[in-house]
Computed example of a mutant assay.
Amino acid sequence: MNPGKLKYRVAFRTQAGTDPVTRLPTEGGETVYTCWSAMEAVSGKEYFAAAAVQAENTVKFTIRYKKDLESSLDLFLLGNEKERKFNIDSILPDYDNKRYMRVMCKEVI
């Protein structure tokens, strides 16, 4: 992959939970990792398989390899506009080269 395609800034954050004392929802989670990524819409066979389940915006992010990421985190697309939140479905590492990872997400609308 061309590293010049990694032009979108993303942040991996822990999910917002509830405060144990007040039992109110917390505003947001803690940022675990921030990096540059490539973003592309899922197309073809992947798109129709995702659309058969529900009508959601499924997006594939490609990032540099990082071994400590978990699918329990949320992904936020950072930029000039407001942040867009994505729920991570799966993280697919490249075990051969350990250069890049694919993060399959669904946008929270």
Rank of each mutant, 00 (worst) to 15 (best):
T22Q: 06
D74S: 05
E83R: 08
A38M: 07
T22S: 07
G79I: 05
I109G: 14
T22D: 07
V42W: 03
G79Q: 11
P3W: 02
G44Q: 02
S43E: 04
F76Q: 07
R9P: 11
E107D: 01
V108A: 11
T31Q: 15
K66M: 05
K66R: 12
N57T: 11
K45V: 13
V59Q: 03
Q15E: 13
R102L: 08
K60N: 10
Y100H: 06
E81R: 08
T62E: 03
M39L: 10
T26R: 11
A52R: 13
Y95C: 04
V42M: 02
V32M: 11
V53H: 12
E107N: 01
T58W: 04
T31M: 15
L77T: 01
K66Y: 11
E40F: 03
G29C: 02
A51E: 09
G17A: 05
I88N: 04
T14L: 10
L73G: 00
K7N: 09
G4E: 15
T14D: 03
V108T: 13
E107L: 01
N80Y: 09
L78V: 13
N80G: 13
K60G: 03
L69A: 02
A49T: 03
V42T: 09
M104I: 12
M104A: 07
T18E: 12
F12E: 01
P93E: 00
S71F: 05
M1S: 09
A52N: 15
Y95G: 06
C105P: 00
K67E: 14
N87Q: 08
E107P: 02
L75S: 00
V32T: 10
C35F: 02
T34M: 12
Y47L: 15
F48K: 13
V108L: 12
Q15N: 10
T26I: 06
K85D: 01
Y100E: 09
K98F: 01
A11D: 08
P25Y: 08
S43M: 02
G4S: 15
D94K: 07
E56N: 14
A52L: 12
G29L: 03
R84K: 14
A50K: 02
